[in-house]
């Protein structure tokens, strides 16, 4: 039906999350219809990003500079480090624009089933960063899952030696959430974390 190059492009795009063969075909067709407006700029952008991308040696973020634009920003205080599981969690927190400290990407969670142990995560690097004099607080922003919280508890124990304050994100009712639709676990967590008004 189409040439090998186009089929190859469809096959590559269909490997991306959220895209299947059908949606990849639609995306390719759209690009083929507008090669000057979409396809060539996209190809240039992909090449430029692939050439420039790097992992920040300080926090583990993916950016085009090392240190990344967050670590290099002098307006962000070095005293608070927010620990996240993956780069997408860092990007999610940045979208919220409510945190003005620095980050540390662990690269996953402790997972016995997948054979991920402490040595496979960037925990030692975090401990080294937390030892710095200017660091006063570490926020554990791991997911509210068994693996995420097990990792958080493990890091808390490791951070005791550094003497920094360790905090975690609150668990409970999301903004816009209706109690009737919340699961029992979230409701129980929200009740435990209630605060004085």
């Amino acid at each position: 039906m189409t040439g090998r190059e186009i089929e190859n492009l469809i096959k590559l795009l269909s490997r991306l999350p959220g895209l299947g063969p059908r949606s990849a075909r639609r995306a390719v067709l759209q690009m083929l219809k507008k090669p000057e407006m979409l396809m060539l700029p996209l190809a240039d952008s992909l090449r430029a990003t692939a050439d420039a991308m790097t992992t920040c040696s300080n926090c583990g973020n993916i950016d085009v500079t090392d240190p990344c634009h967050i670590c290099a920003d002098y307006n962000r205080g070095p005293d608070i480090i927010c620990v996240v599981e993956e780069v997408q969690d860092l990007w999610a927190l940045e979208r919220g624009a409510s945190f003005k400290g620095q980050y540390h990407v662990l690269g996953g969670t402790l997972s016995p089933l997948d054979g991920v142990g402490p040595d496979d995560l960037k925990i030692d690097q975090l401990i080294n960063r937390a030892r710095a004099d200017e660091v006063t607080e570490v926020i554990l922003a791991t997911n509210a899952t068994v693996d995420g919280q097990t990792t958080a508890h493990y890091i808390t124990e490791r951070l005791i030696e550094t003497g920094v304050k360790v905090t975690r994100l609150a668990h409970g009712v999301p903004v816009g959430g209706e109690l009737d639709y919340l699961d029992d676990g979230t409701l129980a967590a929200a009740l435990r974390s209630r605060s004085v008004v």
Partner: peptide, 28 residues
Amino acid sequence: ELTGAHAADLLLSAGPLMAMSSACAMLD
């Protein structure tokens, strides 16, 4: 269908959470 949310109840307690993870991993 969820009938008992034990994981959520234990998320904030380090020891019991580790014991629950250990029991599940051992059974598995």
